[in-house]
Simulated scan of single mutants.
Amino acid sequence: MIPAAFEYKRPMSLEEALSHLAQYGSDARVLAGGQSPPPPPDPGHALPPGPTRGAC
């Protein structure tokens, strides 16, 4: 499969991104990503410190 030709824009501000979206209308597509979410915290560190820890 051969991908369709496209123009890649890399706006550096929200205003620039909105300008591109307004210019290209419904032909525009927004791509985002490149960052993975951080791992969840260790359950032992998510609890408040003190005598309530582990008390049931």
Rank of each mutant, 00 (worst) to 15 (best):
L18W: 03
G33W: 11
D27M: 02
A4N: 06
P43A: 12
M12D: 14
M1F: 13
L47H: 02
E16M: 02
G25R: 13
D27H: 04
P51N: 02
L31W: 05
R53S: 03
P39F: 13
G33Q: 08
Y8H: 13
P3C: 11
S36N: 12
A46Y: 07
Y8M: 10
P39K: 15
S36Y: 14
G34M: 10
L47V: 09
P37C: 01
A32S: 11
P49C: 01
A28W: 03
H45A: 08
Y8D: 03
L47Q: 11
R53C: 01
G54T: 01
L31A: 08
P43H: 08
G50P: 01
A17M: 11
G34I: 10
P40T: 07
P37E: 09
A22S: 14
D42T: 03
G44D: 15
P11H: 01
A5G: 11
A17E: 04
T52Y: 05
S26G: 03
M1R: 13
P49V: 00
F6G: 00
R29F: 00
E7V: 09
P40F: 12
E15I: 10
G50K: 00
P51Y: 06
P51C: 01
A46V: 08
Q35H: 08
Y8P: 06
H45S: 12
S26V: 06
R10I: 07
E16S: 04
L18N: 13
T52K: 03
Y24T: 02
T52M: 04
A17T: 03
G44K: 12
E7A: 01
A17F: 02
S13C: 00
S36A: 15
P39E: 14
I2P: 13
P11C: 02
R53A: 07
Q23K: 13
P3H: 12
P39W: 11
G33S: 09
Q35N: 10
G33H: 10
E16A: 14
R10E: 06
D42G: 07
S19R: 13
A32T: 02
A22H: 04
S36G: 11
L18F: 12
Q23W: 04
P41Y: 06
P3R: 14
A28M: 11
L14V: 07
F6Q: 07
G50V: 07
E15R: 09
A17C: 05
L47F: 08
S26W: 09
G25I: 00
G33I: 10
G54K: 08
I2H: 06
L18P: 00
G34R: 09
R29C: 07
K9F: 15
S13L: 02
A5V: 08
Y24P: 01
G54L: 08
L21Q: 01
L18R: 13
M12C: 08
A32M: 09
Y24M: 09
A55H: 05
S26K: 13
G33N: 06
A4I: 06
A46P: 00
P11I: 01
S13V: 00
S19V: 02
P49Q: 05
C56Q: 12
K9W: 14
S13D: 06
P40S: 12
P51L: 06
P41K: 15
E7M: 05
F6D: 03
P43C: 05
S26I: 09
I2V: 15
G33Y: 06
C56T: 05
H20A: 04
H20Q: 07
A32Q: 05
Y8Q: 12
A4G: 07
P11L: 03
S26L: 09
